[in-house]
């Protein structure tokens, strides 16, 4: 049976969401397995959101923000990085492969990069298979 992954992407308003828009303007194609949730800053992404998504059935979660040093709010992306690192450990403990969580920096000008990042991430999640695919006890 064919399976399409459910992937949640958090995109910060100033850089990555703009990058996603720019990908569209330039018609850079990527797989439709992702849904974008806009937040003002990647530092707004609560680790609880990520756990919630996995609990609700997401196969992958990608947090995207401004390049380090570019944050519209000075250092929100460093905060995001720290939280994602904590989540890598936590997901590992929970038995959720930590590769299912991604963190990427994409600027508003990087439409191509946005498409590439999504394509790669979707490819990775497809290779990993569904998040409950035989991983259960």
């Amino acid at each position: 049976m064919s399976w399409d992954p459910q992937i949640l992407v958090f995109a910060c308003n100033w850089c990555s969401y703009g990058g996603a828009d720019a990908a569209g303007v330039s018609r850079f194609q990527y797989p439709p397995d992702v849904q974008i949730v806009r937040v003002m800053c990647s530092g707004r992404v609560d680790p609880g959101f990520v756990l919630r998504a996995f609990n609700k059935g997401a196969d992958g979660v990608l947090v995207t923000g401004c390049h380090l040093g570019d944050c519209h709010y000075q250092d929100g992306n460093y905060k995001a990085e720290k939280r994602v690192e904590m989540l890598y450990t936590l997901l590992g403990q929970l038995g959720i492969q930590s590769e299912r969580l991604g963190l990427e920096w994409i600027s508003a000008a990087e439409g191509q990069r946005f498409a590439n990042v999504i394509t790669d991430f979707v490819g990775k999640i497809r290779r990993l298979g569904p998040a409950n695919g035989g991983e259960g006890p």
Partner: peptide, 21 residues
């Protein structure tokens, strides 16, 4: 809902899935 820049424009070859998205 950004169904142009983040959907139709980037999933041009997959109309059915773009509709679902």
């Amino acid at each position: 809902s950004n169904i142009r820049n983040q959907c139709s424009w980037v999933h041009a070859d997959e109309p059915e899935r773009a509709t679902e998205k």
